[in-house]
Amino acid sequence: MKNKLMIVAISLIAMVNTYAQEKENLWKAGRPDGHAPISVMGDHYHGKGDVMFSYRYMRMNMEGLLDGTSDISNTAAHNRGYMVTPLNMPMDMHMIGVMYGVTDKITVMAMAMYMQNEMDLQMRMPTGMTNQFATASSGFGDIKIGALYKFINKDRQSLHANVSLSIPTGTLEAKDVTPMSAPNEIQLPYPMQIGSGTFDAELGLTYLGQTNNFSWGTQLKGLYRFGRNDFDYSLGNRYNLNSWFAYKTTDWLSFSARGEVVAEERINGANPNLNPMMVTTADTFNSGGKYINGGLGFNIYIPEGRFKNVRFGFEYAQPLFQEPNGIQLERRETLTFGLQYSL
């Protein structure tokens, strides 16, 4: 009898040790580098019943003109036949999101956004002189809903799928007054519109890895547009590959570096209300391109206390290479701030 009890006790101890080792060997989100840089979406999943609320603010600045990889002056762009050319464009985006673990394998998510765009432009007068003016647009953008499916979480490595659908709730009729239309408002060109006007599907795959003090990840995504919107065009499909590396300095702080490759197709179709020779941004030839971006950031995570599971992230990103199609504004710095809170 004693021998049997001893065997049972040894078996139970072995099972507990095995379970503890398996738990210790999982990829974990509850550390400062347990999330990707704040600019990366859908990088992690949640356990059954877990909820996370998030807020992100992103500011992107564009200034000066590129013709492919070469600088081009506004005067040279005017000489191509365009009456108006852009000088700069800051864009602000506020994003509110929620994630919920339906099961340990499936996490659902939703995100809404509010956008503010401004653009300074230069108009060539018939006399050869130039005149500067500004336009602006703002409003709630398209709503995104989606799900993450966890394939594996083993040996401190994880793999999950990203599937989401963008619902066209953002306006395509943003208007403003220009010197040519005054005192009336006219419909603004493509970059100043708030939504896509189409149902868009995003498919992706995310791989994550960790050690005691380091973490890394790679995410591949494709954004596909379905049909054309009410103004007979659709934005170009977009493909991007993100890879990042982070170092956990303490239980509450980590630093990260990120690299991204982006390929975006030209706009398909054309809005009949826009004159492509009036301004470069109304010409669909001047849309899409190839980009390589780099970013540096940090994550602050509160592991215990009154503000337990609150996370703050920041990233500064800059293009390392850019080759827009046709004549477009040169992309400059992008700043992203974010707060996340898990229940």
Rank of each mutant, 00 (worst) to 15 (best):
M115R: 01
F231L: 06
T171W: 02
E173S: 15
A263V: 12
Y247I: 06
M52E: 05
A112T: 13
T211E: 02
R225M: 10
K221Y: 02
R124S: 03
H160K: 05
N299K: 07
M119A: 14
G209W: 00
L12S: 12
A20F: 03
H46T: 10
P37S: 00
E315I: 10
V262Q: 11
T135G: 05
M111Q: 12
T211D: 01
Q210C: 04
M192V: 06
N268L: 03
R59V: 10
G128C: 09
I167R: 11
F214K: 05
A174Y: 07
D251M: 04
S158W: 00
E202N: 10
A76K: 15
F214Q: 04
M113N: 15
M93G: 02
R228V: 07
T281A: 11
P303Q: 12
G97F: 02
G64V: 08
G209N: 07
L148F: 09
N17H: 09
G170E: 08
N74L: 01
H35K: 10
S137A: 15
S166F: 06
D251L: 01
Q210D: 11
A161S: 08
Y341V: 10
Y114W: 07
V8S: 08
R31Q: 13
M180V: 14
L253V: 11
G204C: 03
V98G: 15
R266M: 08
F285E: 12
S215M: 00
L26E: 12
K221I: 06
T249V: 14
K2W: 12
Y100R: 06
P272R: 09
E265P: 00
F321D: 10
N153S: 09
F285N: 11
S73Y: 12
L253K: 03
E118H: 13
K2S: 11
M6S: 15
K221L: 08
A263L: 11
P168H: 09
G170W: 05
